[in-house]
Design a protein around this nucleic acid. Structure first.
Lengths: 149, 149
DNA sequence: CGGAATTAGTTGCATAACTAACTATATGCC
DNA sequence: GGCATATAGTTAGTTATGCAACTAATTCCG
């Protein structure tokens, strides 16, 4: 039991992810100030589509660590905002491929810059090596708790 | 600009706090399996009250990194479950002091043990030094983005 | 071939989050 | 003393999450 000594008094912030919440809140605020009316969650879906357009909803689930209902509704709302379009796959009619619209492509550069800037503020005064350690720990935690199918 | 090189491709998991989400989901599942019918968010409020009973709602806000409406409803729901009681302060009638009930005190040991166990699973194979670095980074991120009033 | 099992996505329900606007009490200052 | 301001908490509205139950299309396999 190597972590018996883990202090109970420090559990909570680890569990709630206060840091990631703070980053998300700041970024959301920056979007709003710039007149960009999307939520962080919607943005995070667009983020994966900017990396690779035309993903299935299932693929969006695994890449964004969300369950299917969450993606269904996020895509619903993004469709209402005319930022994405569902296109049924021709090979497999169960599958919806999600495509960016022109309007969404216009948001890419500005919002990614804002996200980078927000992360720079968040990480001000943190050593690069420590960031790498932190990311590795978080990835390991995720892997430890996520059973491989 | 020391973090210009921060990779965009790694932004997302940092922002969403996938690791803390995974920990919370696992703990929630463990509660359910043990027949404990409270949410992680409700538990996190109890957690602060176990450390110090009779906090004001405002104090619960700052300790749990939540805003006032969130605490209002969490305390509402905990009151419905008969786990806490609001008691108006005698010195300042605007203030509600929140007290644990006997039923809540009974939950303390079992749920804290489950939380510790879940964290041990989560941190399996992670060096203690790295955990400390990770916590320090997350704290710094939080501090960087949270203006001191 | 055809029924069972799997996979993709949707819907319903409960809880929780954030913002903004609100009430009530307390404090500060002229 | 009395009005302006600040603080504690609540309410309303929108969005998001998790779980469970559901439909529709596909694949597996006897």
């Amino acid at each position: 039991m190597p972590y018996n000594e883990f202090k109970r008094g420090e559990l909570y912030s680890f569990i709630t992810g206060m840091a990631s919440t703070a980053v998300a809140r700041r970024l959301q605020k920056n979007f709003k100030q710039a007149g960009i009316e999307i939520t962080i969650e919607q943005w995070s879906v667009l983020y994966h589509l900017w990396k690779e357009d035309g993903l299935s909803q299932q693929e969006l689930c695994s890449r964004s660590f969300r369950d299917k209902p969450s993606i269904t509704r996020l895509v619903d709302n993004l469709e209402k905002l005319k930022l994405v379009k569902r296109v049924p796959s021709k090979e497999d009619r169960r599958i919806n491929l999600v495509y960016l619209t022109e309007a969404a492509r216009k948001l890419q550069e500005e919002t990614l810059n804002m996200a980078n800037q927000t992360l720079n503020e968040a990480l001000e005064g943190v050593r690069n090596d420590d960031i790498e350690v932190c990311k590795a720990v978080l990835q390991k935690v995720y892997d430890n708790l996520t059973p491989i199918p």
